[in-house]
């Protein structure tokens, strides 16, 4: 188990300089995520244009893994279709928990593949999955904040 698999340069960089880290006043979907275990809190903003995510951003505070995960999510989903986002969500959780089959396609993860290292750290999986559960809530437009518990 090498710490470098968890804190890859890409993750450290996205933690130091989170992308799309801003409030979005004209968002049409907003969801809040909370991890009570470590106090991570984030708000995810989406602007849906038909079936396309024309803009996505987030705000909040958390550990390096949760901030980098949210930052990478926004980068990956800007311009994606809702269908694509749903498909990614369905694959991300198995990727983070080490349950993705060996031979499953991985190209669509692109930079998100850097988060796979958390599968060796069970107590940190929730940090990486928080933004994805929040995304799911935003897409479903559920009014309740999501928590990792």
């Amino acid at each position: 188990m090498d710490l470098k698999d968890l804190y890859q340069d890409l993750i450290v960089d996205h933690n130091r300089r989170p992308r799309n880290f801003r409030r979005m006043p004209d968002a049409n979907r907003v969801a809040e995520g909370f991890n009570p275990l470590c106090g991570d809190k984030l708000t995810l903003y989406l602007k849906l244009d038909g079936g396309t995510i024309s803009d996505v951003s987030f705000e909040g505070s958390g550990c390096a893994i949760s901030v980098a995960s949210a930052s990478l999510l926004t980068e990956r989903l800007k311009g994606a279709t809702v269908e694509e986002a749903e498909a990614l969500f369905a694959d991300m959780i198995p990727l983070l928990t080490g349950k993705l089959p060996e031979n499953a396609p991985r190209e669509h993860f692109r930079k998100l593949a850097a988060l796979e290292g958390v599968k060796e750290y069970p107590s940190r999986v929730k940090c990486a999955s928080l933004s994805w559960h929040t995304l799911e809530a935003a897409l479903k437009n559920a009014g309740q904040p999501v928590t990792t518990e």
Partner: peptide, 19 residues
């Protein structure tokens, strides 16, 4: 973040609590 501290110091064999 404290949570990252906990994970990193653990790899040094140091057990502390974070949260």
């Amino acid at each position: 973040h404290p949570h990252d501290i906990g994970t990193i110091v653990d790899t040094h064999g140091v057990a502390i609590r974070t949260g």
